[in-house]
């Protein structure tokens, strides 16, 4: 891995934000809008007689954390799509750039997006709803780390699919992560799921993170078991999708898809 190549690619993506309003909106406006809508829903539920302990923390906290997962996924998939739309993949992969360096650059881009979105949402939540995400305490660090890791894993998987199937799979760059939302137990506990869906949720690292968040908020309990599950499952998921990415990359080179994708 050569750092100068990773940074070159990262710079290329950061340049895009200097003169693109839609891309800036993606980081600032849409997360803000999400927060406003869910904030009002939370207030309404609270006034309508909701008696859940820490309701605001549940909903707004969960929303901000879910958005971190979503943006980390999008940071990877959109970076790949940018190259596809610009018909730049040939320029990149005919250069000394390695697939691993390409991935590393998209991961850094994803960190940039997650950081921007998190700061925007956290500040807005504090300003409009007097909600402080940091009240979750130090547990927030492993929670966020695991959510970002899962977002990367889904992002790399989705990128492989777009590379393999071309622009007809483009919509997955935005939608893939939502396939995981029902079994991520973002806004409700795992126990409300039917038994068969609970089995799927148990295999989803995000579900353990949100369960952990609830146990911290409602009971102040240390979510060690939830975190252990999340770390373990994320490790397996990451290993599987990286292997899948390299396999797909080799297949695309074999089939000549790398030079046709985006046409």
């Amino acid at each position: 891995m050569k750092l100068h190549r990773i940074l070159a690619l990262l710079t290329r993506h950061l340049y895009l934000y200097r003169r693109s309003l839609p891309r800036i909106m993606e980081i600032f406006y849409w997360p803000f809008l999400d927060l406003v809508i869910w904030g009002f829903i939370t207030l309404y539920l609270g006034r309508a007689g909701g008696h859940l302990p820490g309701m605001v923390t549940f909903f707004l906290g969960a929303l901000i954390l879910w958005d971190m997962l979503f943006r980390s996924h999008q940071g990877i998939t959109i970076s790949f799509l940018e190259e596809l739309w610009a018909r730049n993949l040939m320029n990149l992969f005919a250069s000394p750039l390695k697939p691993g360096e390409f991935l590393a650059a998209t991961l850094l881009m994803s960190i940039f997006k997650v950081t921007c979105v998190s700061v925007v949402m956290t500040l807005c939540a504090a300003a409009f709803y007097s909600y402080n995400l940091l009240q979750v305490g130090l547990w927030l660090i492993p929670f966020v780390f695991n959510l970002v890791l899962m977002g990367w894993a889904i992002g790399v998987f989705t990128t492989s699919l777009i590379m393999r199937f071309g622009q007809e799979a483009e919509v997955l760059a935005w939608s893939m992560v939502f396939l995981f939302q029902p079994i991520s137990c973002v806004f409700y506990p795992m126990e409300v799921l039917p038994a068969w869906l609970r089995v799927l949720a148990m295999m989803n690292p995000a579900a353990h993170i949100f369960e952990g968040l609830r146990s911290v908020v409602s009971a102040g309990a240390a979510p060690a078991a939830s975190l252990a599950w999340a770390f373990g499952l994320n490790g397996l998921l990451a290993a599987a999708v990286i292997a899948w990415f390299y396999q797909t990359f080799a297949y695309c080179k074999e089939q000549g898809l790398l030079v046709r994708v985006g046409e």
Partner: peptide, 24 residues
Amino acid sequence: STYISMPQSLTVEENLWIVARLYG
């Protein structure tokens, strides 16, 4: 190649700088 492009939202100079950095 006639059949390739460069990132469309970047200036010519920015594109060339990125290539230069990519090749070290």
